[in-house]
Design a protein around this nucleic acid. Structure first.
Length: 291
DNA sequence: ATTCCAACCTGATAGC
DNA sequence: TGCTATCAGGTTGGAA
């Protein structure tokens, strides 16, 4: 679910719900693929701490705690981070929803997919993490501790320039789309925005990275920054599971040109949008606009 | 060094 | 209605 814009919007909006608050207690589910730091250790490490700041690196959210340790969250494909008071149909499964009265649907109830509940000393709302597929990652790092997942990240996609992109693509045979999704090159890029940026630059996703010219890299980098920035402005893309911390939807799904538009006419030329699989990811493009 | 691809997990939906 | 196949916004790690 969450690519850079969704993570950044979440960071900005959940920051006031975390920073300066002292954690009283943390509830978790049982150990699973989701927990890099075992849940019992996570509960122990977070309890009693006050959140000092909330940062973002690529698709990772990093809460810096008052003892210098860090709580790191990656939301994978379906991770949702939100306030106890959030209201959204996306926060429960459709089967669960259909069994409830309309009034009951308005109130979020922690379910089996709610893997983290952070309760605070003050009377304010809890902060929750829900992740149906458990592709997300939660870890706690002591002060100064490093981790390869963070160390491997390349330049933040909001800061990308044409020269870096061009340099990364030299002598690479892989498709330009795959290069854009490589987090060690461009931290934060994800499937939607890779497809959208390539469409707006007129470059076909299958083109070998080494065959993208310097000039195209300049335009591609600029387009990437624009697309990501615009999505942040609209609150991110709510195509499936993504909601902002208060439960409201983002708006970027209404602005996309090609992503999940297979079979629809291209908004620029009318040609039919195609879907192929590239690097195991659904990839969408206009065969006429993208060379 | 680079590229490919199975695996992690659950739910929604399209098609028959 | 029900069953089956396909699809989903991500990342890792190991094989080729």
């Amino acid at each position: 679910m969450p690519e850079l814009p969704e993570v950044e919007v979440t960071r900005r909006r959940i920051e006031p719900l975390l920073v300066g608050r002292r954690i009283r207690k943390v509830h978790t589910t049982e150990p699973s693929y989701l927990f890099i730091t075992p849940p019992n250790q996570l509960r122990r490490s977070l309890s009693g701490r006050t959140v000092g700041a909330l940062a973002r690196r690529g698709k990772y959210l990093i809460a810096v705690l008052d003892d210098g340790s860090r709580f790191v969250v990656h939301r994978g494909m379906t991770g949702q981070l939100f306030s106890e008071s959030a209201v959204s149909p996306r926060l429960m499964s459709s089967t669960a929803r259909s069994a409830l009265s309309p009034e009951a649907q308005q109130r979020f109830r922690p379910d089996a997919h709610t893997h983290l509940r952070i309760c605070f000393e003050d009377a304010g709302p809890e902060v929750l993490l829900r992740d149906v597929r458990k592709f997300g990652k939660l870890m706690w790092l002591r002060a100064g501790e490093e981790h390869p997942r963070l160390d491997r990240l390349g330049i933040d996609a909001l800061e990308i320039g044409g020269e870096v992109l061009f340099a990364a693509g030299r002598k690479r045979k892989t498709a330009i789309k795959n290069l854009l999704l490589d987090q060690s090159v461009l931290a934060g890029m994800g499937n939607i925005y890779a497809d959208e940026a390539l469409f707006l630059t007129g470059v076909r996703p299958t083109r070998a990275a080494g065959r993208v010219t310097r000039r195209e890299c300049d335009r591609l980098a600029q387009t990437i920054r624009q697309v990501l920035g615009r999505s942040i402005e609209t609150g991110g893309a709510s195509i499936r599971d993504y909601v902002t911390p208060d439960g409201s939807d983002g708006g970027y799904q209404f602005e996309r040109w090609v992503y999940a538009r297979k079979g629809e006419p291209c908004g620029q030329c009318g040609e039919t949008i195609r879907r192929i699989v590239l690097g195991q990811r659904g990839t969408h493009y206009c065969p006429s606009c993208q060379k």
